[in-house]
Design a protein around this nucleic acid. Structure first.
Lengths: 243, 243
DNA sequence: AAAAATCTTTGACACATGTCAATAGATTGC
DNA sequence: GCAATCTATTGACATGTGTCAAAGATTTTT
């Protein structure tokens, strides 16, 4: 590998991005589209294991993931870490930084990644000009609030197997929306990271995987997972609504 | 204006509201202030136990709490409830509704309350006109995301007593910002509601209160709480940074 | 004022998950 | 290609919190 600065900048255009439907699904005229392109200043590559931003970094931009996979996590003063989310192509990270002008969590690339850098000043300027963009930004933030509400439900009320079932269903659903298989996936995160997200220890995650596997609900081989009985997973997550 | 039942409408002005510093802390000229007043359409009274909005209600407005105390909660299909937050005067609720145009949680008044109704269309219109308001709305949403991140840390990594200590410290801190005592408070929620928020059963909440009381850290008499040793609470919540 | 309902406290015991430890499998570096 | 380092699995046991039950408090209803 040749030494390169972590930040490689590439000029790009939203108007020609194949993730547009996910990232900025706004009904724009092609004229407006030209202006939208100016939200994105540059692209940036992040190597696996590197941080896109860290707790305490000053906040200037939101990031739209083009390729790759991230986790965001917060840490307590005593070092305990809590993974607060896993993000994939088309999703926006960095919203935590808006309130105080610095980031309060770490965003770590779980595989080599590329993001679109959207200086927040640009986002706000264009939002005032384009009500549809404004609405879209509001929806992205609201969606994150609603997502976190349901994680709180998982952490506060669900048992280990329910949490893992919900986690797997959520992952494949999002991957499927991106054109991947509905039944197969390769986890980009370790058992420990899954556990941190779901509020359980890695051994408990592993045991839950093994249990699902023994019951024929899924096939697991390390980080490869095939969902054999999606309905059984849904039933574990939510016993009431599925028959 | 027609006479109301539960919803009593009162015309009011942000420019003369004593909660302005908390709710809309924006450096406005008095001219701009006049326009800001038009964000708030009406006020509405909610009786203790009534819902300000419910899961499934269509979303039209954000609500700024003027007086009273609320909880927000989500429910799973099988009826399990998760309290996602407690809100007091000067705080904004309803952000969950933006993403899908309907609410995904319930907001319940834990005491008689009064809220300012801010039709979201007004908020968006004025946001495009006033960058400071736009920024403020973004900060409110980001703050909620960051708050939920730290609740995830509580639920995923902390033990019962750490959760309760963090909860009490957070409550008094917010009450203090509103001019109340730093050491005394009257809880507006039951042990069960505290437990739901903190991911533990009401008995565990009660035991943790009793433990703190036995140790002389707090004085508890039902819903009255006096914090005798705030430093001890901080140490429980975060053993590393204190001493 | 008595009765009923609700909320809180406390005890005894159960159990889901955490902790510790050993092994095996996968990946990385030399 | 082999050692070193991660990562995942599995077992045995510990423990924090949940469950169930009973008795006081407190508030509401009659």
């Amino acid at each position: 590998m040749k030494p390169e600065t972590i930040t490689e900048t590439i000029k790009v255009a939203c108007s020609s991005c194949n993730l547009r439907e996910l990232c900025m699904p706004i009904g724009f005229t092609s004229d407006d589209m030209q202006k939208l392109d100016s939200v994105v200043a540059t692209r940036r590559r992040i190597k696996q294991g590197d941080n896109l931003f860290s707790n305490g970094d000053s906040f200037t931009s939101l990031f739209a993931i083009r390729t790759g996979f991230f986790k965001t996590c917060v840490s307590a003063a005593d070092g305990r870490e809590q993974v607060t989310g896993f993000q994939m192509a088309g999703e926006i990270i960095g919203l935590d930084g808006i309130v105080s002008d610095y980031h309060s969590c770490n965003a770590v690339a779980l595989e080599d990644a590329e993001v679109c850098v959207m200086p927040f000043a640009n986002v706000e300027d264009l939002s005032r000009e384009f009500p549809q963009l404004q609405r879209h930004v509001h929806k992205i933030m609201s969606r994150e609030i609603v997502r976190e509400n349901s994680v709180m439900m998982l952490l506060g009320n669900m048992r280990a197997e329910e949490r893992l079932a919900a986690f797997l269903l959520n992952l494949v659903q999002r991957l499927h929306a991106r054109g991947f298989s509905q039944s197969e996936l390769t986890l980009r995160m370790s058992r420990e990271e899954i556990g941190s997200y779901l509020g359980m220890k890695l051994e408990t995650v592993s045991r839950a995987f093994s249990k699902f596997s023994d019951e024929g609900i899924i096939e697991v081989k390390q980080r490869y997972v095939r969902i054999i009985e999606p309905d059984a997973l849904k039933k574990i997550f939510n016993p009431e609504t599925c028959t």
